[in-house]
Each structure stands twice: as C-alpha cells, then as structure tokens.
C-alpha cells in the first residue's frame, strides 16, 4: 500500500520534472536570445506567454467578480495577482514582479483569508457572498469594458522603437535613494501609521470598570 503510494508520487514527480524540462527547452531557452522565434504557428514565445498569462489573470478576475463563495473569490484573486505579476516580467519589470509576489500574494492575500476566516462562520460562507445581482454587474461590465478597450486599441500611442528587456533592480534602488528619497521615507511613515491604526481599529474595546 505504502509502496504503491510512493510509486505514484515518484511517477507524478517524474512527470512534473519532464514537464518543466520540456517547457524550459521549448519555450524559455528559445525566448532567451531575442524572444522573436516562432514556436506555435505565427506566435512568438513572447506572444504565447502573454496570451497564457493574460488568460490566467482574466479567469482569476472573473472568479473574483462572479463566484458565489467568498473563499473561491480569494483563490480567484490569487490567480489574478499571480497572472499580473508574471505579466510584469514580460514588461521587463523584474523587481516589481517580485514585490508583487511578496507583498500581494504573500501578505495581502493571507490578510484577506484571515479576515474571511475570522468574520464568517465556515458553515455560512456559502451565503455570505451573495451579490446585489449578477445582471446589474454584467450591465456595468458591458458599459465600461468596451469603452476602455476601444480607447486602448484605437489611440495612436507614441511607442519607443526598441523596448529592451533589461534588469531594473539597480536603477530602482538608485531612484529610491536619489530622486524619490522623500516619497520613499514618507511611505515608511505611512506603513508605521497603518500598523498602529490597524491595531487600534481592530482590537476589542475594553472599558475599565
């Protein structure tokens, strides 16, 4: 029995490793020099990864907006944030992507899950996420999304000729300690005030007798 289970895990691990190696050899390595080689039809590796990650973010956001269960909404938020973070990598924003992973996925999402667990009894999680109405939400979506997409597609943006993929961490550090020093220090003050304020708001009121 145990032997069979170990065997199953070994097979699963072998498949996972084979998958990672395959993806690395077929997609990541061809992408490394220029990103312009075509890997699937007319799509380059860059396009393919963009469409996959955009679909991931879209599905996650869809789940956040329309899922009935608030825990499923939180998982949808996780998927959407991971997809958006991976899109930052495609945009040559490696440091922002890692910050997104650490702060959002590691911090904010855990806070959200804590709030869900603390405020709702698990038995009525199912009914605690009812919406004002799916139809009103869909109407709002179809009123705003086409306008924004139209503007994004139709505006003649002045693009840079050759946007390059380059590491940015060093430049961001220099900017933070140079041009943006004052906002950087103010941000630390904001975080301190947030820490104190959150404790003051969320603690139980205890009155002396």
């Amino acid at each position: 029995m145990i032997l069979r289970r170990v065997l199953a895990w070994a097979v699963a691990a072998a498949f996972l490793i084979a998958f990672v190696v395959l993806v690395t050899n077929r997609i990541v390595v061809p992408m490394a020099p220029t990103g312009q080689e075509q890997v699937a039809g007319a799509l380059t590796a860059f396009d393919l990864s963009f469409y996959l990650l955009a679909a991931m973010a879209f599905i996650g956001a869809f789940g956040v907006a329309l899922s009935k269960n608030v825990l499923h909404s939180a998982i949808g938020l996780l998927v959407a944030l991971l997809g958006a973070g991976a899109l930052y990598v495609l945009l040559s924003a490696d440091f922002v992507a890692v910050a997104q992973l650490l702060v959002y996925v590691g911090g904010v999402l855990v806070l959200v899950l804590f709030a869900v667990m603390l405020t709702a009894r698990i038995s009525d999680v199912n009914v605690s996420n009812v919406s004002f109405g799916v139809w009103g939400g869909l109407a709002l979506f179809f009123a705003t999304a086409p306008v924004l997409c139209f503007v994004a597609v139709k505006t003649p943006w002045q693009l840079l000729p050759h946007p390059d993929l380059a590491p940015t961490t060093e430049a961001i550090g220099n900017e933070f300690l140079g041009r943006f020093l004052l906002p950087f220090e103010v941000a630390s003050l904001v975080l301190l005030a947030t820490l104190v304020g959150a404790v003051v708001i969320a603690r139980k009121e205890t009155r002396p007798e």
């Binding site: 973010a57 879209f58 956001a61 869809f62 956040v64 907006a65 608030v70 909404s73 959407a80 958006a84 959200v112 709030a115 869900v116 405020t119 605690s128 996420n129 009812v130 919406s131 004002f132 109405g133 799916v134 009103g136 939400g137 869909l138 709002l140 979506f141 705003t144 999304a145 924004l148 997409c149 994004a152």
Partner: peptide, 19 residues
C-alpha cells in the same frame, strides 16, 4: 482595462465587506 472592469463590478455588487 478588463481587470479594472472586473474590480469595478466586484466593488459595486458585493455585499460582503471582504469582497
């Protein structure tokens, strides 16, 4: 834009504060 619209719909239709 699509992420923004889904966020807008979520804010407008949820009754749950965490949502």
């Amino acid at each position: 834009a699509l992420l923004f619209c889904f966020g807008l719909v979520t804010v407008a239709t949820r009754r749950n504060g965490v949502g």
